[in-house]
């Protein structure tokens, strides 16, 4: 990034949709190199080509009000919260020579070393301290601009992180990009720091600002308009966050009382294109009716619950649990 004008932006929001939309605007609508730092409230962020439902612990996320978002870059699923710092480095370069994780994240390794953390590059483009992962990275290339972004676990809730990403992916069959689990650690524990996460973010920011000779920059009114539009039409939509998942097949059995339910689905763009439910429930008409209302429905729990609301409760329970 040296020798070119660089802008330095710190997000004023903890809303993941806002920050993902901001990354997109900074990548596509600016010409400068950019350092953008932000912290998200608890949320799960999946990679561009992942199957959302197969990467998350849906019931845990629902019961803890943790939303899920899809990002533009590749790679696997990550958990964010107020103890996690996100850095986003956007740079111009020659097409074909844009993707170099080691080069892109070297300044981050430098600043971590400067702050007392013996960080190093891992094999999966992540940053490690010892053998534990403290940072995951992903990239998106847009024309001759690349956006490298990464997480920095500073003081995250690691049990929530683990629980959020505990999956039931044995039920899914697809070609989507799969996450690779790693052992993780918080930086604040490694360096025994009592500093707030925001304070640590500013220390990192100041170092990067100096390194790139970056100018502080505030988003313009026009940027904010674009961001709001992207939030509304993309980052807060079920179609992008879930529906965009590559085609998958789903198969799961559930037993309630004396009845068993075995559902098999084929889902494309979030819509159930094919459904077959096998059950020993005595009144087969109810099962046929359920299949009919679920066919072409979204593979979304509340949506299907509504579709089934006319059926006996034991069928509702059995089928819902065989679908998620």
């Amino acid at each position: 990034m040296e020798h070119k004008k660089t802008l330095y932006v710190i997000s004023k929001s903890n809303d993941p949709a806002y920050n993902l939309a901001t990354e997109e605007v900074l990548l596509r609508n600016y010409e400068e190199n950019i350092v953008f730092l932000y912290i998200n409230k608890p949320s799960v962020i999946v990679g561009k080509h992942q199957n959302t439902l197969s990467e998350i612990n849906l019931s845990f996320l629902k019961s803890h009000n943790i939303p899920v978002y899809r990002r533009l870059s590749g790679g696997g699923t990550v958990y964010h919260d107020l103890g996690n710092i996100n850095y986003c480095l956007i740079e111009n370069g020659e097409a074909g020579k844009l993707v170099d994780f080691v080069r892109a994240t070297t300044p981050v390794v430098e600043v971590l070393k400067h702050l007392g953390i013996n960080a190093r590059h891992g094999k999966r483009n992540d940053l490690l301290c010892g053998y534990k992962k403290i940072s995951g990275n992903a990239c998106h290339v847009y024309k001759s601009r690349s956006m490298h972004h990464g997480t920095l676990l500073y003081n995250s809730n690691l049990s929530y992180l683990t629980e959020s990403l505990k999956t039931k992916n044995i039920h899914f069959k697809d070609r989507a990009v799969k996450s690779v689990r790693s052992e993780v650690e918080n930086i604040s524990r490694i360096i025994k720091s009592k500093k707030q996460t925001t304070e640590f973010l500013l220390e990192i920011g100041e170092y990067l600002k100096k390194k790139y000779n970056a100018q502080p920059w505030n988003l313009t009114t026009k940027d904010i308009e674009k961001i709001d539009e992207l939030i509304k039409n993309k980052y807060e939509t079920w179609q992008w966050n879930y529906g965009y998942s590559p085609m998958y097949e789903f198969k799961k059995a559930y037993k309630t009382g004396n009845y068993t339910f075995l559902s098999q689905l084929k889902v494309e763009k979030g819509i159930i294109q094919h459904i077959e439910i096998k059950s020993n429930y005595p009144n087969a008409n109810f099962i046929k009716k359920a299949e009919k209302v679920i066919h072409m429905a979204y593979h979304e729990k509340e949506y299907i619950q509504n579709c089934l609301s006319d059926l006996p409760s034991e069928i509702q329970e059995g089928i819902i649990n065989s679908l998620f």
């Binding site: 990679g47 561009k48 870059s73 696997g76």
Partner: peptide
């Protein structure tokens, strides 16, 4: 279209 390789999505 887009293509993904080692965590990188390119158009």
């Amino acid at each position: 279209g887009t293509i993904e390789a080692v965590k990188t999505v390119s158009d």
